[in-house]
């Protein structure tokens, strides 16, 4: 096994192109587990920890361009205002020691349906920026990025450069169910984002389908009902029945399985509860802001 340690983005892309047998490693919180448990023996490790470009974020035109190597601890500290949903999700990632190392880029690279960053990225309408030495950069909407269980749209010669997340225009919420009160992989997770500027709603579901996914029917339904009732403008109370119906539609969007962490039925049920509660909290936040 070789250890490749580029110190610039250009070198990293070159190394990626030259060594298709290399596995990219950033915080190591996924890759090292596979190595320690003898699940994976790649030809090389491509350490992205010394690529300064990846560890930066910047606000650009209503977007935050979040370098793939920015750890969760910094998202919590630095981006709670701009990206509240992602910051809330970040706080549920592993432990403090994990959050200091683990990155959104890593979550995207692993593309586990249980990755905590995915639901808020989907709810916010984030776009993944990937790049190769040969073809340059391209941008992939988050919902198109996840292609299967632990599979993503990255080409073999590409690296994840950044994720572009719209700065929150309204309240966002994130909920995650686990069977203990800290340091737990999601049994199910849900994120929602209200976009009062566009009068739309964003959603993201985690751990309840082969990939993280949105609940488009629920989004359209709620946005439409809010519009029909004039609530986007009046900022009146969110009817309980509406929140409940939204929750049911979110649950319906999932395709969960039974596994050691939870049953499919519970995953679906918990999504309906989380979605109902989260959208109610978000709506109440919107009303209070008004």
């Amino acid at each position: 096994m070789d250890f490749l340690q580029p110190t610039s983005w250009t070198d990293a892309l070159a190394a990626r192109a030259e060594r298709p047998d290399a596995v990219a490693i950033a915080g190591g919180t996924d890759v090292m587990v596979d190595l320690n448990f003898d699940r994976r023996r790649p030809g090389a490790l491509l350490d992205l920890g010394r690529v300064p470009e990846l560890r930066e974020w910047a606000a650009e035109d209503g977007w935050v361009r979040l370098g793939a190597g920015v750890p969760y601890s910094r998202i919590i500290e630095e981006l709670a205002i701009q990206l509240p949903g992602l910051a809330m999700a970040s706080r549920t990632v592993g432990s403090p020691q994990i959050r200091i190392r683990a990155t959104v880029g890593g979550n995207l690279g692993s593309a586990s349906p249980a990755g905590d960053a995915h639901p808020p990225l989907l709810a916010a309408g984030a776009v993944v920026e990937v790049q190769s030495a040969a073809r340059g950069a391209r941008r992939i909407p988050a919902e198109e990025f996840y292609t299967g269980v632990k599979r993503n749209a990255l080409a073999p010669d590409e690296l994840i450069a950044a994720v572009l997340v719209p700065t929150a225009a309204g309240p966002q919420q994130f909920c995650k169910v686990g069977t203990r009160n800290a340091m737990v992989i999601a049994v199910s997770a849900f994120a929602c984002a209200l976009h009062p500027d566009r009068k739309t709603v964003g959603t993201g579901i985690g751990s309840a389908a082969p990939t993280p996914r949105r609940a488009p029917d629920a989004e359209d339904f709620l946005a439409g009902e809010l519009q029909a009732a004039g609530l986007w403008d009046s900022r009146g109370r969110l009817p309980e029945e509406l929140a409940r119906a939204f929750g049911e539609r979110v649950a319906a969007a999932a395709s969960p399985i039974d596994d050691v962490r939870g049953s499919a039925a519970y995953r679906r049920h918990s999504l309906s509860v989380m979605a109902r509660r989260a959208v109610t909290w978000a709506w109440n936040d919107l009303r209070e802001a008004a």
Partner: peptide, 16 residues
């Protein structure tokens, strides 16, 4: 949030 069932998972603000 840390005192509630689910803690930082942010699953309840008192509901249920």
């Amino acid at each position: 949030i840390r005192s509630r069932p689910g803690a930082v998972g942010n699953t309840t603000h008192g509901e249920g």
